[in-house]
Amino acid sequence: MEGKVTKTVYLSLAIIVCAFMLFPLYWTIVSSLKNNTQLFAFPQTFFPPTPQWNVYSQAFGSQWPHLVVSLVVSLGTVVLSLLISLPAAYALAQFKLKITVVFVLILLIVQMIPSISLANALFLIFHNLHLLNSYQGLILADSTYAVPFDVLILRAFIESIPRELIEAGFVDGAGNWLALIRIVTPISKSAIITAALFSFLFAWGDFLYALTVTTTNSIQPITLSIYQYIGSHSTEWNSLMATAVLASIPAGLLLIFTQRYINAGISTSGIK
């Protein structure tokens, strides 16, 4: 319908918008590849004159323990959140009880509570339970981002499964658990992947709980490591920027390989 010229105009506009939005990321990569003299040269160059690739092996060498912590915590959050959310989402979608409305309402509300409000209390609670500086503590705290989201997104999907399909499972004598495992779970694969992806990104990006429920350096996710880097007022911006790139890799990978799930996730988080 639209002419070739108009399409070219739209495409150019879109490229400009993208360039604008992605410039900070481009600048991060450029900065990471400069040496200290080039970083503080005037005027600055908009591409690295002599790319210093070794900064990445150095950054990885010093940051890999933090990346591992983040990976363990994020995967733990995914598993815990799905274990709690999937059965609950099935029940909330399948059984029309009064309590369903209450649960959904509570989930919508707790999703909105500022995390700092929970963090104050969690710190003292975890202190009493000896959960500070532990993987379990971090996973529990991070799962508070994921569980409400996962239940709501999974419930919305399971509701859309034709009831006959689930009830067909009962004919064979299967109970609700078998129906959930054998029928609902395979059908809901895409929704489960979306929920898992977002749980992973929530936990990977968490900084608030990383900061508050750890008091020593023993377990430090990558976000906390970056924060301490900034706080140390060091001028090694190239290694900080290289670390920033490393910390962004999961988001990038997930976007490339699972773009449709991410779009679905954002849309569902706003409107059912």
Partner: peptide, 9 residues
């Protein structure tokens, strides 16, 4: 991408 990377980054 800006929305997906950690805010601290």
């Amino acid at each position: 991408v800006p929305w997906l990377i950690p805010q601290i980054v």
